[in-house]
């Protein structure tokens, strides 16, 4: 174990102890702040249920990500590289993005029910717009000569799309994915909290009404964990594909 790791773990332990102490001393009502032991108790009592809910939430997020990423990038890059499509799709996308989607959620529930499908749909819709908009502007800002040179070399339209425009716009696309993906996570968890019978969001809102603060905190931790996991994945992606842009900027 390295020194910094030791310091980190020590710091975490100290924070947990202080937190437990504050709760034990009764300075803050246990309804507002659950103690670590209360969270542990929640794990002991309902750990299995939470784990199952966590799986449901993660699956919903994963499917919503798959939908929003593929559609968002596809639509965005297409609209960015085809001026005619972009001229209509661009303003349409940005005005739709400005609508608070949550007002449409009851519609989604009416269409596909209260189950995971409505969460996936809502999550994907929340993520789609920023992803598409970023991809669109990312491609549109590219020097048109890149596509010209490629076509002059004999590249097919598909090759220009996948081998030139998409990778060139990748740094912009990835920053869209960052915004979009956090909106997906928020969207899924929030709609679970609003109306559902499954997932971490549901457990949070259910236990909140029962004043089981330990359970609520456990749910919150799991939601944070989901966000953390996804963020990790994104950083990986950024590291792998966005590196040249960073290198280029540090040089310039």
């Amino acid at each position: 174990m390295s020194r910094t790791q030791a310091v980190r773990i020590g710091g975490l332990a100290a924070a947990l102890l202080a937190w437990e102490g504050v709760s034990r001393l009764g300075w803050i009502s246990p309804i507002i702040l659950a103690s670590p032991s209360a969270v542990l108790a929640a794990i002991r009592a309902d750990g299995g249920v939470f784990l199952q809910a966590f799986e449901v939430t993660l699956a919903e997020i994963a499917i919503a990500i798959a939908l929003a990423w593929s559609l968002g990038i596809g639509v965005g890059v297409a609209a960015g590289s085809l001026p005619r499509l972009g001229a209509t799709a661009g303003p349409l996308l940005s005005s739709l993005f400005a609508i608070p989607l949550i007002i449409l959620y009851p519609l989604f529930v009416a269409w596909v029910g209260m189950g995971p499908a409505s969460k996936i749909l809502f999550g994907a819709a929340s993520g789609f717009f920023p992803i598409a908009l970023n991809a669109l502007s990312g491609v549109r800002c590219l020097d048109p000569r890149f596509a010209l040179v490629a076509r002059g070399m004999g590249a097919t339209t598909g090759q220009i799309f996948f081998k030139v425009l998409l990778p060139l716009a990748l740094p912009a696309i990835i920053s869209g994915l960052r915004v979009g993906t956090s909106l997906i996570i928020i969207g899924v968890v929030v709609t679970e909290m609003l109306a559902s019978v499954g997932g971490v969001g549901f457990l949070i809102s259910y236990h909140r009404t029962m004043f089981n603060t330990g359970h609520v905190y456990l749910g919150i931790f799991l939601a944070l964990l989901a966000a953390l996991l996804v963020n990790r994945g994104l950083s990986h992606l950024e590291e792998r594909f966005g590196r040249w842009r960073i290198l280029e900027q540090t040089r310039a």
């Binding site: 020097d143 010209l148 040179v149 990778p167």
Partner: peptide, 13 residues
């Protein structure tokens, strides 16, 4: 026909 532009338009990655 080969083409060469100003600023090279090389693929940065």
């Amino acid at each position: 026909i080969g083409i060469v532009f100003q600023d090279a338009t090389l693929l940065p990655w």
